[in-house]
Design a protein around this nucleic acid. Sequence first.
DNA 1: CGCACATAGATTTTT
DNA 2: TCTATGTGCG
Length: 787
Amino acid sequence: MAEQSFRDLKRSALQKYFNKMNSQQKKAVFTVNGPVLVLAGAGSGKTTVIVNRIANMINFGDAYHNETSKASEDEINFLSDYIDGKTDDIAKLKDIIAVSPVKPWNILAITFTNKAAGELRTRLSNILGEDDAREINAATFHSACVRILRREIDKLGYSNSFTIYDSDDSQRVIKSCLSDLNVSEQQFPPKAILSSISKAKDNMLFPEDIEASVGGDFRKSIISKVYTEYQKRLKNSNALDFDDIIMLTVQLFIDFPDVLEYYQNRYRYILVDEYQDTNHAQFKLVSLLASEHNNLCVVGDDDQSIYKFRGATIENILNFENQFENTVVIHLEQNYRSTQRILNTANSIIKNNQGRKPKTLWTDGELGDKTVVYKAQDEMDEAKFIAKTILDNVKHGGKFNDNVVLYRMNAQSNIIERAFVQSGIPYRVLGGLKFFDRKEIKDVLAYLAVINNNNDMLRLKRIINEPKRGLGESTLTMLEEITMDLNISPLEAMRNAADYPVLSKKASVLKSLAKMFDTLSDLSKTLPLDKLLDELLDKSGYREYLKSLGDDGINRLENINELKSTMISYANEAEEPSLSSFLEEISLYTDVDKLDEFVDAVYMMTIHSSKGLEFPNVFVVGMEEGIFPSSRTFESEDEIEEERRLAYVAFTRAQKRLYLSNAAQRMLFGTTSRNFPSRFIKEIEPDLIEKIDNTVKATTGAIAVTTVSSIPLQKQIAKIKSNEPSKQPVEIDFAEGDRVKHNIFGEGTVISVRKMANDAMLEVDFDKVGTKKLMANFAKINKIDNN
DNA sequence: CGCACATAGATTTTT
DNA sequence: TCTATGTGCG
């Protein structure tokens, strides 16, 4: 009897502890052991579930389901008191009910982006406290694998100090392979080859596997040859591409069971977010790791799988229950984001997909407005409509950043930008040229890569003649040949350039360049990173060179300064800052998190990059057959389904209002075409829609004047910028004495503010960790309101 | 070697 | 239509 009531009390206490969650969410939180599949619809509080589940594991272990424990009268009284709200002594609660609580370091939580990993860490830290949170390995697939490979990769014949090539680096290697193998780039575009290789690696196929499957296929035989050569070169340069990071970790686990066993015991509890986006190699990785303890929880939404083209296999989530015996499946269908009408709109289209697990999002909240479907005369009219509607929304008390414009492809942003420029609407375009893709940033990073690793031929090639040093194609080829033939580092060859007749003409330049790298390599051991960067810019002449470029050069120098800020905040936050670890962090970093809640501007982005975000008002433009769905997907039902999921993702970003638009006539890539309205519009139940047809007015003569200036966008922007009194300084409103909160360091008081470039260096006395210097714009730091 | 001009190619891209 | 690349000349 006592046991029975203890179990019920224990459960009630846990229910109370997690009382902010709905019953399905709680089910996910309490199911700690064994395989768990959480099908988390859009806006269903997925991250909250993940965070609370981990908190439950660490605080209470398997308390909810465990049947064996018993309790004293005293303890039973305490539980009753806790449930009645008479006490909130959590430490005592843990003491009484916890059953084999999980050690934080036994948990591996995998996400897809660094941003998601960072958010997860912050939220874990808030709920569990920093000490426990720090011990949890919350990382991306790639960074988790890199950590493993740094320790173990020598077993696969690589050196542990390998470098990581980004897709740009990879493409350069491919191009150089193609030219050496005499394969024409026209016939075999490097991009296509690279994606074939990537696909192979996603499926754990090594060059020899591809070679074995060539048969009589000419195309395949070429790909196989290039793949073999490409992989050879990567290995010679001791480099891994993004796909290698996963593939080689899996291979390591397959080849070395003792290594696998070590990590199985290390990570007894595994959690994977966005599981619908995993590829085969990632599936393999996770199943190997989980196969001993079988505590694998995956969270995802098959309806939001939109990365098939990148190798994601939706089957991973659809088949999870078959692959892992006794899986507990939990559906999260209550939505906390959108109005019921928006959810109905989304539901009404997604139910047309065959390959999905049936589910229906619902909300407790309001019904909301109907979805507006605007039929424009052409793309300018569409853009004007959006601009006008946003201005309207703002006039009625909204903010610009309540609005987002989503499109199928980046090329569609241009015309809307123009309309915004003309209407004076502030906007930000996400995507496009990324910060770390800028030439000057890549150049500087290439310098640093060579300083860090003298063997990095690829990076050396990039900057050997940047700024111009008279070292051209021919010198480079010679240098590379000598390096390969004699198996020495390129710097070694450069130091002794005079000894090689083919290099003798350029010997002095090469020698002094080698000397410069030697000096910088030495300095790198003692100097802080930002100082090293300064030295590098001066000694290499790169700063001089940029200055000589005029305005554009100044701009680029500013970008380099931004990199410097990154270095400073890295140095502040890293436990053991070093050049190599900085480069590693950078190599796995992309700037998806440029979205800044504090800038009041309309955001524009592709639907793909909007996944995971939410906005009050969402505009989805170009809802036309041929554009969305893209004409390239017409033939295959599978691909149409992926487009439909994309539409579902787009619609479910909206909290309050959803606007869909299409144009009767549209100019794209220089040619005008007439597209039918998207099938996805037709799939929406008619009574969910409010139609506005601007093409009708046009035929009756009342033509809305919708001229959008034909001056090229960049010039228009430049003109507006030059009219501005000064380049708008980034708003830095930190002052001495302000209370601030930082993601990692917690709360503190600003003790000094020093303005720099377009940023400010803050010195903050943190309550817990003491004084730190941070860059205002780069560090994730916010002011706390005093009222 | 460096610049001016021509030309292809243009879904989507968490690392 | 735009823009990132490649080629040919000075």
